[in-house]
């Protein structure tokens, strides 16, 4: 098993931390992982992306030209990464802020209205966890349980009360994907 994933959007949307949580989940599940950010001068507003590879064998290149799965959160990222999804791969996007829809027919295209769902959960910070839930529904590379164990390990104790909310967001994201 090897899953090559790119997550891309605006800085501030939680792109890098979503990748980090996914990578930690892989670590919890005893898998090999790499997390490679685009570490340019991206802060709130600029574009940011991260490549996460999860594999059951050693990983060679942390830098890739094509991906099994892309999660794109703005138009620029959709334009950039739609052509880089491998045939048969998966493209997950948030339709809010997208004016040109993805057009490929040889990949699975999954719209996830995560912004809407985050508003329903009354916490905009759950946005990336909703998307992570959707990603793991489409591509169950790690179990949700590993994500939660990863959160427990990496979050400082004072933030542990937020874990149930994150679990709720993950489940919400999974529900948003039609089987």
């Amino acid at each position: 098993m090897k899953e090559e994933i790119v997550i891309a959007g605006f800085g501030g949307q939680g792109v890098l931390s979503m990748g980090k949580i996914l990578a930690y989940a892989g670590l919890m599940d005893d898998l090999e992982v790499t997390w490679m950010p685009s570490y340019g001068p991206e802060q709130r507003g600029g574009t940011a992306n991260v490549t996460v590879i999860i594999s059951d064998s050693p990983i060679s290149s942390p830098v890739l030209d094509t991906f099994d799965t892309a999660v794109v959160l703005n138009q620029q990222s959709l334009d950039k990464f739609e052509p880089k999804v491998k045939p048969g791969g998966t493209l997950i996007y948030d339709p809010s802020g997208i004016h040109r829809l993805p057009g490929r027919t040889d990949i699975r295209i999954v719209p996830v209205d995560a912004m809407e769902a985050a508003i329903e959960l009354k916490n905009s910070k759950t946005y990336n966890m909703i998307l992570l839930g959707a990603l793991l529904k489409c591509r169950p590379v790690v179990p949700i349980d590993a994500v939660l164990r990863g959160l427990k390990k990496t979050l400082p104790e004072r933030h542990h009360h937020l874990i149930p909310l994150n679990e709720q967001a993950l489940n919400k994201g999974m529900e948003l994907v039609n089987a």
Binding site: A23, L27, E32, V33, W35, P37, Y39
Partner: peptide
């Protein structure tokens, strides 16, 4: 920069 910035096990 790649080895400095990337995370792995």
């Amino acid at each position: 920069g790649v080895v400095g910035q990337m995370m792995e096990k």
